[in-house]
Write a protein that binds this DNA or RNA. Structure first.
Lengths: 210, 210
DNA sequence: GTCTATAACTCGATAGAC
DNA sequence: GTCTATCGAGTTATAGAC
């Protein structure tokens, strides 16, 4: 929502848009350093010089793409975290939403974490959106459930990090997991599809009061 | 490669070693694409040409470093997974060992996952060690505990992926977590120190039989 | 707006003196 | 073994015709 404002993506199917789409594809697969303007131009079906005509430099183009990618990831967390609903349902929805977004865009987390580690200064200064999720409400909700004895005591910060980790990491480390577990690509696909149910089950089991 | 059979690291404090150390530092921070031979030479305090004298190409040098890094990570998993001990103790030790290795070498997981995604072919062919951990024994142990009713039913593959995710991801996504949770670097340090206890507690809680 | 051509620069790699 | 000097390929970016 409010897609325009801070300007993330250009509109309609213009040359500018074609460039942006191509850049999105290439950058998200290969990161900033691993990508070349030539490859982006080729994929957009236009000339290299046009990239500089629409986006002044590689840095600027990268910045646009990175902002769009991050905005997508952030809004997915916000939406669920800030809505009012019972804790168990919120957890279920959070896991479902989060794994959904990531499995449809498996490059997102890898892109974010590798770029944030390579250029932390720029990332925080120019790429991070300013409407970050505010997890305080969620924290209070967890504390309330603990006080009422409906769930086992746990620090809410750790609960949320546990959950995000289990949602995200298997997709980021897919090739590693496949090797470790000795799975074929097909088996891995099935395995990742099971994650939503398995993570939900695991988190709720850990929260059962003693 | 006339070097050494399984060859991971050169010995003593020779020029070769200085190059290797410098390359280790630079590659692990910036990856293959983000690093330059010049920077490695500078950090080693020697000339660029010497890099090519000892390691024929950037690719070869990278391969050596990557193998050493991966071997370290893999042996940490092996050690615990394959030893015989009660399940609860094994889980405790696994988490303790794993978080220990990663917190002392925070770059390892990020390095592995970003490089494996960028060059999967080479990674599997030339960098992956052949003595991978064999988790089958661990799987059987979990199944046995479930059959005996001592833990709640769970697919062992998911249990191990849950656990690894919670150990690794917070270190990989540290800057993201810091932003999301609104923590200062100091608070983040404390938070990561708590992880060993928190993850252990969480996993064991989830495994309690109903 | 879109193209070709090319300038300016960086980087990996090699030649050759010592 | 270690250095300086340089080549050649590849990359970002710009100039200028259309």
């Amino acid at each position: 929502m409010a897609k325009r404002e801070t300007s993330t993506e250009p509109s309609s199917d213009t040359t500018e848009q074609k460039i942006f789409d191509a850049a999105h594809e290439v950058f998200s697969q290969k990161g900033m350093d691993g990508s070349t303007m030539q490859e982006i131009a080729d994929r957009a079906g236009i000339n290299k010089a046009l990239l500089h005509y629409y986006y002044r430099s590689k840095d600027k183009l990268y910045e646009m793409v990175a902002r769009a990618i991050l905005a997508k990831a952030v809004s997915a967390i916000r939406e669920v975290l800030e809505k009012e609903m019972p804790l168990e349902e919120k957890i279920k929805r959070f896991i479902e939403t989060y794994i959904g977004v990531i499995s449809r865009n498996t490059f997102i987390p890898l892109f974010i974490i590798s770029e944030i580690n390579k250029h932390p200064d720029r990332f925080i200064a120019t790429i991070l959106p300013d409407d970050l999720p505010r997890p305080q409400a969620f924290f209070q909700q967890v504390e309330a459930e603990i006080a009422a004895g409906r769930i086992r005591p746990i620090k809410p910060q750790h609960l949320i990090v546990h959950t995000i980790s289990m949602c995200v990491f298997p997709f980021v480390g897919k090739p590693m997991m496949a090797v470790l577990l000795g799975m074929s690509p097909d088996e891995m696909r099935v395995f990742l599809k099971e994650r939503t149910a398995e993570v939900t089950d695991f988190v709720l089991a850990a929260l059962r009061p003693e």
